[in-house]
Design a binder for these strands. Structure first.
Lengths: 208, 208
DNA sequence: GCATCTCTCTACCGAACGGTAGGGAGGCCA
DNA sequence: TGGCCTCCCTACCGTTCGGTAGAGAGATGC
């Protein structure tokens, strides 16, 4: 891993832990093992480094989301999607903390970016939810867009603060994730929808 | 309102918007209309001002929570509690942003404070949930402590970022709050529990 | 052998930071 | 009237910040 990649990694970690303003270029350089001036050779400014860190995360989703929505069809779609989001952020909670900080620090810039990058995909998934409401598998009372926003909130802020607030549960992060998935499913599907999903899963397993 | 109170207000707003490190004493002083040195007359240091801002918020809950748990008994307890939390943070979203930042910025210090101040109350409410599970009004599958943490997450991070992420819903914050309450209730109560609550409410209204 | 490109270094800049020293104006009380 | 307390001020301190200038070391290609 060359110095540029190391710097991106260290910056992700430090920005997530201490915020943009709370992290100095010297601190990032020290984590990499070089001097501040050498760091500024790879990134023309602190702001450029910050942008590169964010791009790395957003780029992941612009690649993964379409593939995920195509691959997992039918009733597995919800499970696959939720699992992938949870997996990505639990794999490195700094990503969740970084996104959360970004929304707090630069609300206007982040709003513009999200409307452009996330809103189209949210519209697609909201469409799936509305279809599920017509077929009776998803509760009529669900507000699709608001529901999706809240689930994203649950995942991101839940994982971002799991280390801190999980201490009340004696650090059992799995318990948090299980309850999160339970809440998301229970408040989305009707009892009938859940029963149908169980049936289909049983049929699939029998077919194997 | 004297200068000290004005400074607390301005600091709350600025810390919430730009973070502790991103907010200078001069900026706070300017918002009040005095000089930096005069600000440091009222608070011996920036850190002391920061602590005073946080104390103001935590003090509110140590006053309100006990009263709220005593006053609203029975099935109204959940509604009253959730409404009060939502009301407090929507009344001034900066409070939510501040708490969120605090958990991100000082995880260790915040963990200690939360374990001391919040954990006891969470245990009480978790006890109510377990009682509800025995009587069949609350779903067996609920993990009480994890559930409570997630609801708090939903409220705080939902409100903290409502201005930014609500833009996807064309800024309709009410839609977010309604869906939040729906998700919290639907994933907590059984169908029977919800039906019983409706019955009781009808009886109460008839009695008036 | 020599020029060139890549990457790192030391040394330094001006600006902004949190905090201190000390003085002055106005109210209050003896 | 004189002393004191409250509150705000100007001026200044040392430190750290993001960023620049310019030189040196090592590898590559001609």
């Amino acid at each position: 891993m060359d110095a540029r990649e190391q710097a991106l990694d260290a910056a992700t970690r430090l920005f997530a832990a201490q915020g943009y303003g709370g992290t100095s270029l010297s601190a990032i350089a020290e984590a990499v093992g070089i001097r501040k001036a050498s760091l500024l050779y790879h990134f023309p400014s602190k702001e450029a480094l910050h942008r590169a860190v964010l791009d790395q995360i957003l780029e992941h989703w612009s690649k993964v989301l379409p593939r995920l929505l195509e691959a997992a069809a039918g009733d597995d779609r919800f499970d696959a999607l939720l699992h992938e989001v949870v997996r990505f952020f639990t794999a490195d909670p700094d990503r969740a903390r970084l996104v959360l900080r970004e929304v707090l620090d630069r609300p206007d810039a982040m709003r513009a970016r999200l409307v452009e990058a996330v809103a189209p995909w949210m519209a697609v998934i909201a469409g799936y939810i509305r279809k599920g409401q017509e077929s009776g598998e998803i509760r009529e009372s669900v507000d699709p867009e608001a529901y999706l926003l809240h689930v994203i909130h649950l995942v991101i802020s839940g994982i971002a603060t799991a280390d801190t607030l999980g201490s009340v549960l004696e650090g059992d992060v799995d318990r948090l994730v299980r309850e999160l998935e339970r809440m998301a499913k229970t408040s989305l599907f009707t009892e009938e929808g859940l029963a149908r999903a169980r049936q289909r899963r049983a049929k699939n397993e029998a077919a194997e």
